[in-house]
C-alpha cells in the first residue's frame, strides 16, 4: 500500500517537473499553461464526481467566480497577488457554501441545477448594475499585473498540490468512506459516518480548486470579458477529459487531458467542426462501450488474463 503511494507520488512529481522543464524546449507557454490548468480542473471534477457521484455541469461557475474574486481583490482592495489568489479561493468557497443546498438534489436534477447556477453567477457578474464592482460587460483589465511566467509556475505548484491531495484522498479512510457513500449512502450513514458533512467538504474542495484555477487564469490572461471566463465549454472540457481518462482514478484526468487537449490543439484549430464531430462521437462511444474511461482498458485486459482482481474497484 505504502509502496503504491510512493509510486503515485513520484509519477506526479515527474509530471510536474516535466512541465517545469518544458518551457525551455517549447515556448508557447499558453498551451502548456492551459494543459496544466485543465489537468487541475478535471481533477476537481474527478474529486466531486468520482467520489460522490455529483456531476457539476456548471463547474465553470466556480471558475468564473474565482477569476472575478481575484480581480476584485486586486482592483478594489489592492491586495498583493498571493493574497488576491487566496481571496479568490475564499470567495469561491463562499459561493460554494451559498450553493450547497444543491447537494440535496440528486442525479440529473443536480447537474441541471448546477448548470443553472453557473448561468446565474454569470448573469450577475455581467450585469450593468454592478459595473462599478465587476466592470460588467466592459470586462476586466488587470494587465498591470500581467506575468505569464509567474502565473505558469503558480499553476504548476497547484497541480502538484492537487495531485498529492487526490492521492491522499484516495488512500485515506476519508476517501474510502466517500466511495462507500457514493455506492450506498444509507448504510454508510448508519455506520456512523457523517455523510452530509463529508459531501460538503468534497464539494467545497472541488469548488476551491476551480476558483483557484479561475484566479490564476485571470492573472495569466489579465484582460477578459465575462463571456470568456464563464464559457460553459471550459467546465465541459474538464468533465470530458476526466471521463475519457477514467472517473475516480488518480491519473485518468491527467491522461485524458494530455490526449484530448493535445488532439484539440492539433485538429481542433484547423478544422473545428470535424473536431466537434469527432468529440461528440467519442463521447457517445465512451458512454456506450467504455463508461469507466481508457484506464479501465488495462484492468479489463488483466481480468481477461485471469489475474487476481483488485481488492478495491476504483484503483
Amino acid at each position: 500500500m505504502r509502496k503504491q503511494t510512493t509510486i503515485d507520488l513520484s509519477i506526479s512529481l515527474v509530471l510536474v517537473l516535466a512541465f517545469v522543464a518544458l518551457p525551455h524546449f517549447y515556448s508557447n507557454l499558453t498551451i502548456l499553461f492551459m494543459m496544466a490548468m485543465y489537468m487541475v480542473l478535471s481533477q476537481g471534477v474527478n474529486l466531486l464526481y468520482g467520489l460522490t457521484g455529483y456531476m457539476p455541469f456548471g463547474y465553470v461557475g466556480f471558475f468564473g467566480a474565482g477569476a472575478y474574486g481575484f480581480s476584485i481583490a486586486l482592483q478594489h482592495l489592492h491586495f498583493p497577488i498571493v493574497l488576491a489568489l487566496i481571496f479568490g479561493v475564499l470567495f469561491t468557497s463562499l459561493v460554494g457554501v451559498i450553493l450547497s443546498p444543491l447537494l440535496r438534489l440528486s442525479g440529473a436534477y443536480f447537474a441541471i441545477g448546477n448548470l443553472a447556477t453557473s448561468q446565474v453567477i454569470y448573469g450577475i457578474v455581467a450585469n450593468s448594475h454592478l459595473q462599478g464592482i465587476t466592470g460588467g460587460g466592459d470586462g476586466v483589465d488587470i494587465s498591470q499585473y500581467f506575468n505569464q511566467t509567474a502565473s505558469y509556475y503558480v499553476m504548476l505548484a497547484v497541480l502538484l498540490v492537487v495531485m498529492v491531495g487526490i492521492i491522499w484522498v484516495k488512500r485515506s479512510s476519508f476517501g474510502l468512506s466517500l466511495q462507500a457513500m457514493r455506492d450506498d449512502s444509507v448504510s454508510v450513514a448508519m455506520s456512523g459516518v457523517n455523510v452530509v458533512r463529508n459531501r460538503m467538504l468534497v464539494w467545497l474542495a472541488s469548488a476551491a480548486i476551480a476558483g483557484l484555477c479561475g484566479a490564476i487564469y485571470a492573472w495569466f490572461i489579465s484582460f477578459f470579458y465575462p463571456s470568456s471566463v464563464f464559457d460553459v465549454s471550459i467546465g465541459i472540457f474538464a468533465i470530458v477529459f476526466m471521463l475519457f481518462g477514467g472517473q475516480g482514478t488518480i491519473f485518468g484526468p491527467v491522461i485524458g487531458t494530455i490526449i484530448l487537449y493535445g488532439i484539440y490543439n492539433v485538429i481542433g484549430v484547423s478544422t473545428p467542426q470535424y473536431f466537434q464531430l469527432a468529440y461528440g462521437v467519442l463521447i457517445v462511444i465512451l458512454v456506450m462501450f467504455l463508461p469507466n474511461g481508457v484506464l479501465s482498458l488495462f484492468k479489463r485486459g488483466r481480468r481477461a488474463h485471469g489475474r487476481v482482481l483488485e481488492s478495491r474497484p476504483n484503483f
Partner: peptide
C-alpha cells in the same frame, strides 16, 4: 508500470502535438 508508460507516451504526444500546431 503501464500507467507510467502511458503517461510518458502522453507527454511525448504533448510535445509532438504542440510542435504540430
Amino acid at each position: 508500470v503501464l500507467v507510467s508508460v502511458v503517461s510518458a507516451v502522453g507527454l511525448a504526444a504533448l510535445v509532438a502535438g504542440c510542435g504540430t500546431v
